[in-house]
Computed example of a mutant assay.
Amino acid sequence: MIEVLGRSGYAGLTMDAVAMVAGVGKATIYRRWSSKAELLLGVMDVVGAPVLEVPDTGRLREDLIAVLTQVVELLGGPSGRAIRSLLGAVVDDPVLQEGCRRLPLANWDAAWDTVVARAVERGEVPARAGQSIAAEVGPAVLALRWLVTGRPLDATVVIELVDRVVLPLLQRP
């Protein structure tokens, strides 16, 4: 299913193609899922959404670099292709919106929240940093570059983003 999604995009994802890859009849697919959105969410529930490992280097800068590097790797891999194909459909489909909030975004938010909370405990950032919109800037910039501009994502971008944008915003009193 994810293979078909990454190759064909959400618009090109058909129950016929999924049935063929799964080696079953289309009726078998429809008995369990009434739409491709429900099928996709069912698959995500089983295989899980990509989860970011939460680093604990003891320093906010290194933790941020590690988390954002994982985001870059994810966006550049098969999961990233699948996510890209879903984004247009998510806007108009409440089932997909809920699925994205529940799985990939919740997983990523949890990793980010943990990194920032540890930094608050160590006194590296103010207590309100975790509730600030500044915490959303790093992943948002990477997603914009990846999705809209097509500019490269690499270690240089991650380090510049952390040093020049994310850290200064999180460390503001």
Rank of each mutant, 00 (worst) to 15 (best):
V125P: 02
N107D: 03
W112I: 09
L86H: 07
G150W: 08
G80C: 06
L169G: 13
G6P: 09
Q171N: 09
A155H: 01
T156G: 14
V158D: 01
V46H: 10
C100K: 07
P104I: 09
V72T: 11
Q97L: 05
D56S: 04
G88D: 04
E136T: 11
G80D: 01
V141H: 00
G48C: 05
S79I: 00
A89E: 10
V157R: 13
G138K: 08
L169I: 07
L13I: 04
P126K: 10
E53S: 10
D56P: 05
V115E: 00
D93H: 06
P126D: 08
R32N: 13
L142S: 00
L13P: 13
P126Y: 10
A129E: 01
L144E: 09
L74P: 03
C100M: 15
S132C: 15
A17L: 04
L105T: 13
T69A: 14
L39D: 10
V47E: 11
L169D: 14
L75E: 08
M44F: 07
L170W: 15
A17P: 00
W112L: 11
A37R: 05
Q131H: 13
L167V: 00
R128E: 06
G138P: 04
A11Q: 03
L161V: 05
G58Y: 08
W146L: 01
A129I: 14
V54W: 05
L39M: 07
V141S: 10
D16W: 09
G42K: 15
K36E: 08
A111I: 00
A19R: 04
L170R: 15
L105I: 10
V90C: 04
D16A: 14
Q131M: 15
V21M: 13
G9K: 01
M44C: 05
L13S: 14
A106D: 05
L147P: 02
G6T: 03
G77H: 03
V54C: 10
G76H: 06
P55S: 01
E73H: 02
K36P: 04
A49Q: 07
V137C: 15
D56E: 12
D154K: 11
L86D: 03
